[in-house]
Design a protein around this nucleic acid. Sequence first.
RNA 1: GGUCCCAUCGUCUAGUGGUUUAGGACAUCACUCUUUCAAGGUGAAGGCACGGGUUCGACUCCCGUUGGGACCA
Length: 470
Amino acid sequence: MNNQEIRVRIAPSPTGALHVGLVRSALYNWLFARHNNGKFILRIEDTDVSRSTQESVQAIIEGFKWVGLDWDEGPYFQSQRLNIYRAYAQKLLDEKKAYYCYCNPEELESERQKAWQKKIPWRYDRRCFHLSADIKARYDKENRPKALRFLIPNETVIFDDIIHGTIKKEPQDIEDFIIMRADGTPTYNFAVVIDDAEMRINYIIRAVEHIANTPKQILLYKALNFPIPKFAHLPLILGTDKKKLSKRHGALSLWEYKKAGFLPDAIINFLALLGWSPGHDIEIMDRKQMIELFTLEKVNKANAIFDIKKLEWMNSVYIKNMASEKLGKELKPFLNEIDIMPNDDERFLKILDLTKVRVRTLTELRDMVSAFYQKEPTFDQQAVNKYITPKTKEYLKLLQSRFEKLTDFNALNLENELRNLASELNIKAAELVHPCRVALTGKTVGPPLFETIELLGKSAVLERLNNIIQ
RNA sequence: GGUCCCAUCGUCUAGUGGUUUAGGACAUCACUCUUUCAAGGUGAAGGCACGGGUUCGACUCCCGUUGGGACCA
């Protein structure tokens, strides 16, 4: 390894939702760049005009920002670089390393299909390479559409993938693939090589689905006299059905995870571990640690299944470890959505302290916190049936009058009052606790009762008890 | 169909020939703590796909089979 600056990139096509597979690839590139003091570059591959959208470009940019993957250069846009591809295409044509193909794409496709059905291998047979000058002139005169094909040199391609080791490909297994379509746009394999070379990308870290393209691309690097970068092909993220994660697997866009109440740090931590492990049983890591520990050599080869249960657990860890001030800021947009605007900072923080340890997502937290801000509790009918009886109503009546007399309405005093009453009535404290919780919160489960009562506040508590007693 | 990639508990993984009765985490179950639910603590169950080699010795190396996956304007 020389001391040349390391330059990596993420090159998404803006053709749909920003999915977690892309975020994971970006993350690994980013970690590698930061670990090596290199540069992380963002390039938008928008040559497929029909499928690219501005919204998708925006989603990528905002998404990377949201999860904290900052880039050093770009975004560059392929659509603004068409002249560059054309110039290189012309160069290959002039050097006879590429040739025009006048074949009809539909015809070729149907030939291919037929061959597959007959179970015989099919590869483009270079028929246009052998066309005479006369015929070519005639076709040009007729204005026949022509694509540009790369003439595969007769050499074995060998490269060392950092993750997968040595990979070898024989020339007869590669067809003369198209580099420029008839409409003048470059194909993926061509544009990507030129962009990476021009942007001096020296490490290409991308998903393993591109491993089959790599020999083609290496041949292009050679034909164009570009230095060949190092390659590292990342394992795929699979759905629970072991198929490549796609739209069919439900929530997969980054925004859906955001909406569901996942924290960027948790998502990043989880994604980092999907295909990589620093060893030593380390799992919860902040970004600094991740950057320090990350190496491509420790990336796995095998594809990984996305397990939302583990993400949920990790998110819960991040929620409970987050300072309540900060957590409050993250939670407020969720509360605002349901028209709750907490402006009682001290109480709000206490509520968070009480609730954050018992949720996995911000939406769960929102539901638990909002209960403190609603006028009426939402009653769980089963809980009511079980705990609100004529007898417990009597108890609650007594309890209410005691609470009413309390001047210092804090958890400690409340607990004393309730326990005293229980022993006077000669019943277990639990026989008061459960009905009281149902009367005040509508539910049998929740944070510890006395803190809950304190945070609900005296007037709300008396009112709620009153409503039940009636 | 061709080419290529992959294979440790249900899931994410540690493991680079002997330190291993294969370690950790999520999920599951039990116990514990406790006013409930969580969190925490303790523990249980659960895995090297299969078959051949190589070797004094294979989860680890090689080959094959099976299974999964990807790519082929």
